[in-house]
């Protein structure tokens, strides 16, 4: 469909939904957005004490819930709760994901299905749910998909995981086109973190990545949060892009 461009600017997001917001990068994103004065709705399978503490500190600006991202019905009622408490959602960060650490030949088929459901199907459905509500209300908004350098470069032991991350990067581009400037849609693709999911690579592989990284260190969540915040809050013309944050390890 070729239509006249929508030239109205997309305002900064004021109510942001963050999936997988209870630990690691997700928790760092929630913390950073709260510091920036944004209202934040965060869900995760398990609410950690860290997330509970944030909710207690900002009772009027945070809504948290225990929701499995693959449970669409639960996600739907969470979104309704959020809208009642914080107002209409005009930003979403698709961060919830599960890792992988197994050679493709020896990964159980049900595990492959679970990785795809959690990392690809669920965020696409959550995004659909939220953009339907935004479109219905005539809202403009921002979408940030947290993907991974795995979507662009190969790493052993992460075949299904990489497929989902590359899939989300591809969806980002098509969604940016489809939403015709009403919403800005981008991916942020971090390199490997020292903690959490990148424990998947094992110490030898991580040492190798550090040696090959011009900045000399693995990515830290606090090095990624400003980029997410910029995409949600700043007036830029960045749309349909994948921004890699990996210290040039992959260059």
């Amino acid at each position: 469909m070729s239509e006249p461009a929508d030239t109205q600017l997309v305002p900064p997001s004021s109510v942001v939904l963050v999936s997988g917001g209870s630990r690691g990068l997700g928790l760092a994103i929630v913390t950073d957005l709260l510091d920036a004065g944004v209202r934040v709705a965060a869900f995760a399978r398990t609410i950690t004490p860290e997330l509970e503490k944030l909710a207690a500190e900002h009772p009027d600006r945070v809504h948290v819930g225990s929701v499995d991202v693959t449970d669409l019905r639960a996600a739907q009622s969470f979104v309704r709760e959020v809208e009642q408490r914080l107002g209409p959602i005009d930003g979403i960060v698709n961060n919830a994901a599960m890792g992988q650490d197994s050679l493709h030949a020896h990964t159980a088929t049900e595990d492959i299905a679970r990785i795809i459901e959690t990392n690809l199907t669920a965020p696409l459905q959550l995004t659909r749910l939220v953009i339907r509500r935004m479109l219905a209300k005539g809202l403009r908004g921002r979408i940030v998909n947290i993907t991974s350098i795995c979507g662009q470069r190969g790493f052993p032991g992460l075949v299904a995981y990489s497929a989902t991350k590359g899939g989300m990067d591809a969806a980002t581009r098509s969604l940016a086109r489809e939403l015709g400037g009403r919403m800005l849609v981008n991916s942020v693709a971090p390199g490997f973190f020292a903690s959490e999911m990148s424990a998947v690579l094992g110490p030898t592989q991580l040492d190798q990545i550090v040696r090959r990284t011009p900045t000399g260190h693995l990515t830290e969540p606090v090095e990624v949060t400003p980029v997410v915040r910029m995409l949600l809050r700043e007036h830029t013309n960045i749309n349909g892009q994948v921004i890699v944050v990996d210290g040039a390890a992959s260059i």
């Binding site: 650490d101 197994s102 052993p156 094992g202």
Partner: peptide, 11 residues
């Protein structure tokens, strides 16, 4: 029987 396993065991 399929033998599926994670990489840490392999390492």
């Amino acid at each position: 029987e399929e033998l599926n396993f994670d990489a840490p065991g392999l390492r």
